[in-house]
Design a protein around this nucleic acid. Structure first.
Ligand SMILES: [Zn+2]
Ligand SMILES: [Zn+2]
Ligand SMILES: [Zn+2]
Ligand SMILES: [Zn+2]
Lengths: 175, 175
DNA sequence: TGCCGATATGTTATATAGTAGCATATCTGC
DNA sequence: GCAGATATGCTACTATATAACATATCGGCA
């Protein structure tokens, strides 16, 4: 029998995620979020901030109900509406993205400026990389111009194997 | 009070869908499906064929549970697993596509040859247009080469207003 | 300071989407 | 006709998301 075991996506002991200091990513994202909300006169409440923090715990997309399990409400247990409302706010403010093909959410890596993005999801480590990919966006604009289609929203999602997982193939054991 | 009313997406009396004879689209799709399944030695059973027919009733994406409501089983009522199994088969055979951002399905317009596609969903008439968009696909390939990302699957979905709806704006009434 | 309207969260219930596991039926090759 | 493979029926369940209304909190202003 063949068993395939993938390495754990993150170290259990540290903020190291695929070899980078992820604490920096998270801190920066939260600081940017605070500033943007201040500038815009909208409120990054404790609940919204907590959801954003949980989303930024890794570069893996997280599902609404997994967030729900991890929310520590001041009293009782959190309900779906709570987390979905926080997600709606964060989406509106451009602080997170929804990965439609996963029904899951990731922190936006470029929330401080207007952008459009490709989302590259690794089917091994489950991390999602956001790439502005200007060339792709221009090609889409040209295509839509030909089609005379007035764009409101794009979702460009690619699934595959990221370079790190390609270089460190999964451990394979024979039982 | 302002009320906005969109024209009905299809004529109730005919196979005319946004001004084209849609019966031709459907007939061609079903014939192609029969041939492909024959060539491949897979079975387009009555259930699978019925689901494909229902999907091809229009160019609007249809949800699994709406299909379920419309399936006429030989006996009793259809259950979710029935329709999802038919959908799985049709997806595997490349006869339909899933629109991830809608949790809905459309018939593939190019099932007789290998292709990759953009899905343009009109938020007014709800029709979905599939476009091969070679330029976009090349741009994505270049981007993924830079990212050293090995692609397994793409979903490129755009929401907006199609040219037909842009030309025939919704009726607006004041009450 | 205390009240008011607006915003945010709590709570209950329900709608929508998708899967697991096992029984039964149908097909296909022998 | 029989056996194994494939497809469907069926029951139950899990997962994802929203509606509607009650309560709490915030922030400006009398
Ligand atoms: Zn990081
Ligand atoms: Zn972003
Ligand atoms: Zn048509
Ligand atoms: Zn297609």
């Amino acid at each position: 029998m063949q068993l395939t075991v993938f390495p754990a996506p993150t170290s259990p002991t540290a903020n190291l995620d695929h070899g980078h200091d992820h604490g920096g990513c998270r801190t920066k994202a939260l600081q940017t979020a605070e500033q943007l909300c201040n500038n815009r006169g909208v409120r990054l409440t404790p609940m919204r901030r907590q959801v954003l923090e949980l989303i930024w715990e890794s570069h893996r997309a997280i599902k609404a109900y997994d967030l729900l399990d991890r929310i520590k409400p001041t009293t009782g247990t959190a309900k779906p509406a709570t987390v979905y409302r926080a997600l709606d706010f964060l989406l509106e403010q451009g602080l997170i993205h929804k990965v439609e093909s996963l029904n899951a959410f990731i922190g936006c890596s470029f929330s401080d400026h207007q952008h459009q993005q490709l989302l590259l999801t690794c089917i091994r480590c489950l991390e999602v990389e956001e790439r502005p990919a200007a060339g792709v966006m221009e090609a889409i604009d040209r295509e839509l111009e030909q089609a005379a289609f007035i764009i409101h929203h794009k979702a460009i999602e690619i699934h595959g194997i990221c370079i790190r997982c390609a270089k460190h193939p999964p451990i394979t054991a024979t039982i």
